[in-house]
Amino acid sequence: MIEVKGLRKSFGPIVAVDDVSFSVGQGDVLGFTGPNGAGKTTTMRMLSCFLRPDAGTATVAGYDIIDESVNVRRNLGYLAENVPAYNEMTATGFLKFVCDARGINGSKRRQAIERIAETCSITGVMHQLIGTLSKGYRRRVGLAQTLIHDPPVLVLDEPTDGLDPNQKFEVRKLIKNLAKERCIIVSTHILEEVDAICNRMIVMDRGGIRADSTPRELREEVGGSLDDIFLTLTTGETAGRSDAAKPEPADAREGGGQ
């Protein structure tokens, strides 16, 4: 349901994503990992039609991200990294706006909002201003925005970042439940999360794909835990040093986070 062919994006002299290709099918949950600045967010922003690629293209749910971007956005639920929302609105008002923009009206809108508030456990904060919500609730309101139109394709940029362990568990369970008839890309720094919810895994580094496989195959190929594999693939250092600090390259380039 997602076909990516040779995507490339640079910000000035910095090449954030360089010739990235992969595909994700229905029922797949793809774990997108890599150090900060690897190009994960930029790739996801291109898939969600927020950024226009310099070269290459992709199709999402059969629609081209450049020529048919409105159709792509209609079929896509996108949760951005820092969960942008309108702080001066209440959660209800915000979700109403999202429904309007997505053409969900009248009684359907009321039902959709009730259903999603239940799913994302935000019923208690629906009348609070988004700007006053805690980080966890804010992210769940963002998740509600992402899921409200029941999209066939989901792109989630670090959906569990900033959540407490219980909330993380809930969100992972939610993603797993959603996976069956959908196609989901989840970016994360937490490798145990990849193990818990993903059946596919892509490791990105410096704008390119270093590995595209399943967590199990990677373990067999490279050996060691996922942390070791991550270290080997993104720094070239040998595995077996998983005690060492997690690789956060000092030269992590800012471009990838744009």
Binding site: S48, V98, R102
Partner: peptide
């Protein structure tokens, strides 16, 4: 703006 332009 990232939210706005990823809506249809």
């Amino acid at each position: 703006i990232e939210l706005l332009f990823t809506l249809p």
